[in-house]
């Protein structure tokens, strides 16, 4: 994987936490803040943070159109929490989104910060070891299109999904202690 460069959207949020995991996998990272940062990338990370703040910061830099174009061309994407909201087809309550991932997602669906938690997850591969997910004012996936595959659940809620070259986690693997979700992303590159 040497030489592959991952663009990490670095407008607002916990983008620096992703960089540590990507570096451990031998990937180069670049912080995306303006249109000129988006040339020559091999993959994208849309981090956690506040999706409404990120949207405001994307607009003046034309990043909405540029990232939408790259994702449309099939560039691998890892989206976490607010990143999933940016990537989703539909957001509740209504908010602009890239619309690439065929899901409906509800913001802050588990409630305010008092309801944030670390939860045990169930993975699709039965032999896979138990893992945990850090949920912070997390969104919930309410609907999935037929091409969306579930990779992990929190009780009955899908919390890690894949569609083509897109992986989306409603929790924060970048705040976890192992890099299993980032390894899944590496496999797409």
């Amino acid at each position: 994987m040497a030489g592959k460069t991952i663009g990490v959207l670095a407008l607002q949020g916990d983008f620096s936490a992703h960089e540590g995991f990507l570096s451990e996998l031998g990937l180069q990272t670049r912080r995306l803040r303006s249109a000129s940062d988006c040339i020559g990338l091999d993959g994208l990370v849309l981090p956690g943070g506040e999706s409404s703040a990120m949207l405001r910061l994307m607009e003046p830099e034309n990043l909405f159109e540029i990232l939408g174009g790259l994702i449309g061309e099939g560039m691998p994407v890892l989206a976490t929490c607010a990143g999933v909201i940016l990537l989703a087809k539909k957001v509740i309550p209504e908010q602009r989104s890239l619309g690439a991932l065929d899901i409906d997602v509800e913001r802050n669906a588990y409630g305010r910060q008092l309801y944030s938690s670390v939860e045990k997850l169930r993975r699709a591969e039965p032999e896979a070891a138990g893992v945990e997910g850090v949920f912070i004012r997390a969104p919930k996936i309410l609907r999935m299109g037929p091409s969306v595959e579930v990779l992990a659940w929190r009780k009955d809620d899908p919390v890690l999904v894949r569609q083509g070259a897109m992986i989306a986690a409603t929790f924060h693997p970048e705040l976890g202690s192992d890099g299993w979700v980032h390894s899944l992303f590496l496999d797409l590159l």
């Binding site: 607002q12 949020g13 916990d14 506040e50 409404s52 703040a53 949207l55 850090v134 912070i136 705040l175």
Partner: peptide, 30 residues
Amino acid sequence: GLAEMLKGGVIMDVTSAEQARIAEDAGAAA
């Protein structure tokens, strides 16, 4: 974890719903 989500953002003092809306529309993280 929530503090991590606010990084790179602006937290704005507001004293009314109207100010809160202006803050959110401007891209406040909180």
